[in-house]
């Protein structure tokens, strides 16, 4: 062990590489990559008389493309995911700015406070909105006691508004956290220089701050967007019965509707949309892995 000849060293390096790389690679291949490939094959198979016909066909994609109800679901899902992302950006920017730039010694405490809600049950957080927005809910009770409403209103729950609001709430920490990091790294000297050159605060924000924190915005956006694209818990608990999303369609095709090939085709649609979003983000260099 004291003197190592180069060839031996190389074989040891090789052994080290195999010992660290192969187990996770094998594990992920057998339990994730193969299942994903299988899912993609399912999407080009078809269901005939409750039997899965394992031949190549584009039947499922034809169904999706020609059925206007399915097209509406796809558009609604993308629209919801985009609006949730946009609203979360608007909410998260100022708080990210505040914690990242003015947090000082309280920065890690403030960050922890953003994180903590994530550790309470996701299901129950969604359900809590039902209690807040419902007929006998917090908002109705408050509005009646203030004399603004005479009787409880049912406009707050089971619609696009309650779905969007709940999504905005449950994914918000995923947007705030990368923004705190981005604002932390922001070189203060640039902001001072800009102020010294008499730039109005808004100009400094638009020309200096925003471009520098864009990677954080994009990183948060891709999480928020992808999480919304695949969710079916929120729409089924607080959404309207006619407001189902792609996640609901997939889960019902793999459940009661029992058409796995069609469900797989929908899952592929979700994957492609998320990949498209990811491609845009990667092009902007947001997920640069240093």
């Amino acid at each position: 062990m004291t003197s190592i000849a180069p060839p031996q060293r190389r074989t040891r390096r090789q052994a080290g590489l195999y010992a660290t790389l192969l187990p996770p690679l094998l594990w992920m291949t057998l339990l994730y990559f193969v299942p994903i490939v299988l899912l993609i094959s399912y999407s080009v198979w078809r269901l005939e008389a409750f039997d899965i016909v394992k031949e190549f066909s584009l039947t499922n994609f034809q169904t999706i493309a020609t059925n206007s109800a399915y097209r509406t679901v796809i558009l609604r899902t993308v629209f919801t995911a985009l609006s949730v992302t946009a609203i979360d950006i608007v909410i998260a920017l100022p708080i990210g700015y505040f914690i990242g730039c003015y947090g000082g010694r309280f920065r890690s405490l403030l960050t922890l406070l953003v994180l903590l809600p994530l550790w309470s049950s996701y299901l129950v957080r969604v359900f809590a909105w039902k209690i807040i927005l419902g007929y006998n809910g917090v908002i109705n009770t408050a509005l009646i006691s203030l004399g603004i409403l005479q009787e409880p209103s049912s406009v707050f729950l089971y619609n696009q508004f309650s779905t969007t609001l709940t999504f905005v709430h449950v994914w918000l920490p995923f947007m705030i956290l990368p923004l705190i990091t981005a604002f932390e790294r922001l070189p203060k000297s640039l902001l001072e220089a800009s102020a010294d050159l008499n730039a109005p605060p808004w100009t400094t924000f638009r020309r200096i701050t925003l471009p520098l924190v864009t990677p954080g915005i994009l990183a948060g956006s891709i999480s928020t967007f992808a999480l919304t694209m695949g969710d079916f818990i929120t729409p089924s608990l607080v959404g309207s019965p006619s407001g189902i999303m792609l996640g609901n369609v997939i889960s019902s095709q793999f459940g009661v509707a029992y058409n796995w090939p069609l469900g797989a085709a929908f899952a592929l649609v979700v994957m492609l949309i998320v990949f498209a979003g990811l491609a845009i983000v990667l092009k902007q260099g947001a997920l640069e892995m240093e």
Binding site: P24, M28, L31, Y32, F33, V34, P35, I36, L38, L39, Y42, I222, A226, L227, M229, G230, D231, F232, G247, I250, S251, F254, W260, G263, A264, A267, V270, M271, V274, L278
Partner: peptide, 21 residues
Amino acid sequence: IALNLPILLPGIVTGVAMLAY
């Protein structure tokens, strides 16, 4: 990137893919 796919893609994709498998 491949290792990160399970958290980049929505959970439902992982769920139904593994169910089918």
